[in-house]
Simulated scan of single mutants.
Amino acid sequence: MSDVAEIAEYEQADLKGTIDNSLSRKIKDIIAGFIGGGVQVLIGQPADLVKIRLQTTQATSSVQVIKDVIKNEGLLAFYKGTLPPLVGVGICVSLQFYGFHETKRQILQYTGQNKLNLWPQTYIAGAMAGVVNTPVASPVEQLRILSQSSSGESISMLNTIKRIYNTQGLGGIYRGFNITLLREFQAYGVWFLTYETLIQNIIKYHNFKSRDQISTPELLASGALAGNALWLSSYPLDVIKSNIQSDGFDSASKFNGSILKATRYIYQQHGFYGFWRGLTPCLLRAVPCSAGTFASVELALRVMG
């Protein structure tokens, strides 16, 4: 039997072979996810600003972006646009982990299994986490990108929402929804699949009886590797999304929300490399962010039981 097949024999949640469908279990999934989301934002916001500037401006290096921000905007600018993601990402990560665990429960009930295999079931559960997350992630990320993509005068989140809604309606708030959905489906399918594969390898290696026995450093390492897998598998989609969501409106718009137009523009301006601009700070950010997210979620769930 292959390693993957052997690993797939392990229970993906608590190795007890039972399905806990209680309301309290679902609430705990949501709370743990919110904690993980807050940790993720506070760790990763500076690197995320650098990534967005590289994706949507003519800056050619992370060092150039960092120097320009410090010179023109000051150190606090690295946390520009933090409020929307601090609240929004907390909600998003809550939805991601709830979506993952709820999809897992539904798959196990439907199939009659007491164990979730890694492929394709864990990927599907992760992908559905992305789908559930998209209605919140799409407007939140657009607000963050509009805050981060230029060095102009800061505009409050509420005023930005009002301006977009008054001129563009709900469609303007949800600009980039389709490309966000594509990115989320692939990204979180890979994220959860990679993390659970690593976790089950650790369980097998140590012959643990429960994932609660896994050490914090091992949780952090698994989360870090999962974070890089997420971005390597979905980064071009994220670049397209950033360009669509940082675009102007009406006569100032280059893409009018079109994925095809944005893709063509990126290729014409930067070639194939354009779809990978900003990858380095993104991967550097992903290591502590994803590590902190998964570890904080796991530890929170352990505390809550």
Rank of each mutant, 00 (worst) to 15 (best):
M1D: 09
A5S: 12
E6R: 10
E6W: 01
Y10F: 12
L15H: 05
K16N: 14
I19R: 13
S22H: 07
I30S: 06
A32T: 04
F34P: 00
G36Q: 00
I43E: 07
L49C: 03
L54R: 06
A59I: 01
A59P: 00
V63D: 09
K71S: 13
N72Q: 13
E73P: 00
G81M: 04
T82D: 04
P84K: 04
G88H: 08
C92I: 10
C92F: 00
S94M: 05
L95V: 04
F100V: 09
R105Y: 00
G112L: 01
L116T: 10
P120W: 07
P120L: 12
Y123K: 10
I124F: 14
A125D: 11
G126R: 12
A127F: 06
A127C: 09
V131D: 07
I145P: 02
L146H: 09
S149E: 05
G152D: 12
I155H: 10
N159V: 01
Y165H: 15
N166Q: 14
G169I: 08
I173Y: 10
R175L: 08
G176K: 11
L181Y: 08
Q186D: 06
Y195Q: 13
N201P: 00
K204T: 04
Y205A: 12
Y205G: 04
N207C: 03
F208Q: 07
P217I: 06
L219Y: 14
G223V: 03
S242Q: 14
N243W: 02
I244M: 10
A252V: 01
S258K: 13
C282H: 09
L283H: 09
L284G: 03
R285W: 01
A286S: 14
P288R: 03
A291T: 08
F294V: 08
E298V: 02
L299I: 10
R302I: 02
